[in-house]
Structure formats: structure tokens, C-alpha cells
Simulated scan of single mutants.
Amino acid sequence: MPGTTDDAYAEAVRLVLGELPDLPHVPELPARGVWAAMTGRGLAVLDGLAADLQPAGWRLTDVSGVDHRRARSLLAQDLDTVEELAQDHGGAFKTQVVGPWTLAATVEKPRGDKVLSDHGARRELAQALAEGVRLHLADLQRRVRGVDRWIVQVDEPALAAVVHGQVPTASGYGRHRSVDLPEASAHLEWVVAAITEAGGEAWVHSCAPRTPWSLVAGTGVHGLSADLDLLGPGDLDTFAEVLEAGRTAALGVVPPTDPATDPSDAGVTERVQRWLDMLGLDPEAVGEALVVSPTCGLAGATPQWAARAVRLTATVARNL
């Protein structure tokens, strides 16, 4: 969500609680700084590993630096706000965390270059993330006790680049070697298993093209979340199988930034219906297994469009 202040964070929590009663979430406001952005927030969740902010970006260290401590403090502060405002909430609630491969592609080793470049380092990072997510979910469960269905969305925008060998090296002149699919799957499986064992439901989200959705679907994850425009023919089969199995498919169909023309709820609803018709699926048959959402995060939107987008997705869901 857009916003740079504590008041904006509280307003974002009120918005999702008020407009998305069936699936509110813990908002993220990355415009507040690197401590609140995707990588910083992911590092704040890690268990057993320290980090610090260097001129080139986040780097693993022996001892947590001031910026790592600030990221953890800001996360705790945000959860205090969620706890205060969501006390009467029941039903489902979603939180999100950066995935192991996106974290490995954006964080450096202690002596430089991405964690992605070192087999042992990326394994250690994924395991620390899995344990950290387990503790993070337990913390949320203590804070908001009325929730009976916790969903943890694992954000993996860099997964496609990782498996296709498209992540730049430190020099910028080369690319890191692609990660073998069994290893790519295994690291995701650790995080998914940690979420499941902690009593949560794991979804994986990516709004990047060429995301290997069949691989993701095989990790034990309950839900897949993607930009509908970026799904290829093979991906459509994977999403259809997920829906038919009673798992969740979240389709990104609402623009993440202010569009030139305001889309109507009828037009967006018809688009989703056409997609379901193409797959031979009935909206009533898929029921709550189908979710509609913005195509990606709303952090780049104006506050007015962010609020409009949230309300539009809720209206489209009711229409379906």
C-alpha cells in the first residue's frame, strides 16, 4: 500500500479490515524506507542470521546492524497496530513474506556477491527464513486470537530469474548460473512446510513472467497467486488443476497503479468469467477457491487508487 507515515499504516489496516472482511491482510508500506520494503521486511523475519545495510544493499553479517534492528522494530510496531485494530476480527487473515529465492537474489554474502552464488549460503538462508516464518506466524496467532484461518503469502518475484539464470552478478556484466529445479523446489518446500506445521496455509505469489508455476504447485503450497495476463497455456492448466482440487488460485486482474481509464467492476467480472469458461469451470463450482486481486502490490499507486482498487476487487468477488 502507498504511504510514508505511521498514520498511513494505521489507515491502511483500517481500509483492508473494512473493505476486505473476508480476506484482510497485514499491509506493507515500502515507501517508508528500505526497512519496510520487501527485502528489509524479509530479513526482519529471519531467525538465527544477522544483516546490515551497505551502500550496495542488504548484506548478511555476524551481528545485526542498526538498519537490521530498525527493520525488526518497525515490523513489531506494525504488528502492534494490526493487533490493536483487528481484535474483533474472525475468519481468515493473510500476511506475507519474501520467498527464499527472491531473498537469495537480493541479499549479499558477508564478503560480497549475492547469496544466490553460494550453494551452502542459500540453503542456510532458506532454512533461517523457514524458521523465522514459523515464529512470525506464531506471533501473529498470539496477537489476533479470533482468526481461524491464517494465510501466509510467499512473495517470489525473482523466482523466474533464478531458475532461468537471469540474476545479474555483482559486476553487472554476467549472470548467476540457473538453479536446478529440484533445489528450487526444495527451498520453497522448507518454507511451505514451516507455514503448514505452524497452522497456516501457504500461498506463493509472483507477478513476473515465466514463473515456473507447475514447480510451485508441487511444493505442497495451497494457493497460487499471479497476474492473469502473464499466465501461459501451460500455466492455465496448472491453475485449473489447483482450482479443481479445491486449492486456491488468486488472479491478478485489477491494475496496481492509477489506470488511464477507470475499469468497471462489470468489465473485470466478465474477464474472469471468460477465463473460467475457457477452462470449463463454473464460478459457483470453484467457490471460495477463487480469489481476485490487484495484479501486483499497490505501493506505487496514489492513495485514492489504492482504496479504489481494494473496493473494486471486493465488488468483483461479490459479482462472481
Rank of each mutant, 00 (worst) to 15 (best):
D22Q: 15
R318G: 13
P263N: 00
V291A: 11
A309I: 03
E84A: 10
P27G: 08
V310K: 03
P24D: 11
G57I: 09
P157V: 05
L60N: 10
L17I: 00
V162A: 03
P294C: 05
I195D: 00
T95E: 02
L43F: 07
H136Q: 09
R149A: 10
A121G: 06
A184G: 15
V286K: 04
V242T: 14
S64C: 01
R149I: 04
S73W: 10
D282I: 05
V13M: 09
L188S: 04
Y173K: 00
R145L: 10
D229Q: 13
A285K: 06
E11H: 11
L276F: 10
L228T: 04
W213E: 07
R175C: 07
P157H: 03
S64Y: 04
A245P: 03
T81W: 01
D113Q: 09
P27Y: 10
K109Q: 15
G234I: 06
P110F: 03
D139T: 13
L135C: 01
V242Q: 13
A170P: 02
A285Q: 15
D229W: 14
G57D: 01
L53C: 12
D52C: 05
L103D: 04
P24S: 11
A245T: 11
A170Q: 14
A10E: 15
T257L: 08
C207Y: 02
D118A: 15
E270G: 04
L188D: 02
A56G: 11
G234D: 13
G172A: 03
V179C: 06
A158T: 03
T5A: 04
V82S: 05
D62T: 01
V272T: 00
E156Y: 02
V147E: 11
D180S: 15
Q304K: 10
P294N: 11
P294F: 08
E108H: 07
G112M: 01
G48P: 14
R143I: 09
V13P: 08
T102M: 00
L279R: 15
G112S: 00
T61Y: 01
A309R: 01
P303G: 01
L137C: 07
E108F: 04
A198E: 08
G42H: 07
L279Y: 06
L74Y: 04
A198G: 11
D67S: 09
A50V: 05
E244N: 13
R32N: 03
D22G: 13
D6R: 14
L236C: 04
C296F: 10
